[in-house]
């Protein structure tokens, strides 16, 4: 079953169209990566899902129930982690979780049990210390704990890693990955390596439009066969190679790049590149050329991202 579905959702602020005809759905127990530049409309989309903003058109359902602006009955299924979560500095994590639990109407015993469980999960040991002196990473952990407190069906994280150092980032990603067993995660980011690390499905958002979406496997298959690269030892080999293989370009120094023809059929592209590569290797052997390396190039997520945003 899909935990979250969006259909034909649009939103503009005045003349500026922030989101255009957005349509996607998230099945249960997936980590859904929402990728886009700053200002692509990620946060706006999340706020609409949370009922903090009104969509101009379109229907959103969370766990089968429709989201209405201003009413937050669907929010009982959602846990939300803002990009830079802010807490009351004078409360301790335990007290803050208690406040959250009381507001969502959880039972007292359940609150206590869940609080312990969640703090354990996110690895926050300073339970009796006031939030005041917490680092960003610690706040992010508390943010996840509060978001998961009432067992939400959907966890929405707005750029949970962008404000953290590499270590803190890895830890937060690990937590999100563990959490997948209990809930569904939608998280936005512009850090592409995060996406590769934990996402099952991803969506590229650009200028308010969904440019591409799919599972990570689908994207991987699309990324193969960009071309290959050879690095030689001698300048004259480079010259010879370039002469015999039209369509290859020198990358400066001893490197030569042989790119695929930019057709759309992935399967054909792959075959084309493979054929070209073995052909080149034959040529290298035949001419007694020494090479430093030969390598199949893969489209990085970054290339794909750049392609999507048209740069």
């Amino acid at each position: 079953m899909d935990v979250l579905t969006l259909s034909h959702v649009s939103k503009s602020f005045g003349q500026h169209r922030v989101i255009e005809n957005l349509e996607f759905c998230i099945p249960e127990h997936t980590v859904y990566g929402f990728i886009g530049q700053n200002g692509a409309g990620k946060t706006t989309t999340m706020k609409i899902i949370l009922g903090l903003l009104r969509a101009d058109t379109g229907v959103i359902t969370v766990n089968g129930k429709q989201v209405c602006y201003g009413q937050n009955h669907t929010n009982q299924f959602i846990g939300y982690l803002p990009d830079v979560p802010e807490f009351y500095g004078f409360l301790t994590p335990i007290e803050y979780l208690e406040l959250c639990g009381e507001i969502t109407g959880m039972e007292k015993r359940e609150i206590r049990r869940r609080s312990e469980e969640m703090l354990e999960l996110v690895g926050l040991s300073e339970r009796k210390k006031r939030v005041q002196g917490f680092s960003r990473g610690m706040k992010q952990r508390l943010g996840i704990a509060q978001a998961l407190l009432n067992r939400p069906k959907l966890l929405i994280c707005d750029e949970p890693t962008s404000a953290l150092d590499p270590v803190g980032r890895k830890e937060i990603l690990d937590i999100l990955h563990t959490v997948k067993e209990h809930t569904t995660v939608l998280f936005s980011t512009h850090i592409l390596s995060d996406v590769e690390r934990i996402c099952d499905k991803i969506a590229f958002l650009h200028n308010g439009k969904l440019e591409f979406q799919g599972t990570l496997e689908e994207i991987r298959s699309q990324r193969q066969g960009r071309g290959f690269q050879i690095e030689f030892y001698r300048k004259e080999d480079v010259a010879l190679f370039l002469k015999y293989f039209p369509g290859t370009v020198s990358e400066g120094g001893y490197k030569v790049l042989c790119e695929r023809n930019m057709g759309n059929n992935m399967q054909n592209n792959m075959k084309y590149v493979e054929k070209n590569m073995t052909h080149a290797m034959e040529f290298v052997v035949k001419n007694n050329m020494a090479i430093r390396s030969i390598e199949m190039l893969e489209t990085t997520l970054e290339n794909l991202f750049m392609e999507v945003v048209g740069q």
């Binding site: 949370l50 009922g51 903090l52 937050n72 009955h73 929010n75 009982q76 959602i78 939300y80 803002p82 830079v84 979560p85 802010e86 807490f87 009351y88 406040l99 959250c100 507001i103 969502t104 109407g105 509060q146």
Partner: peptide, 13 residues
């Protein structure tokens, strides 16, 4: 200014 209320409101307060 600190944004502390947003969390309370999204939780249904």
């Amino acid at each position: 200014q600190k944004g502390t209320l947003i969390n309370m409101l999204t939780k249904g307060l």
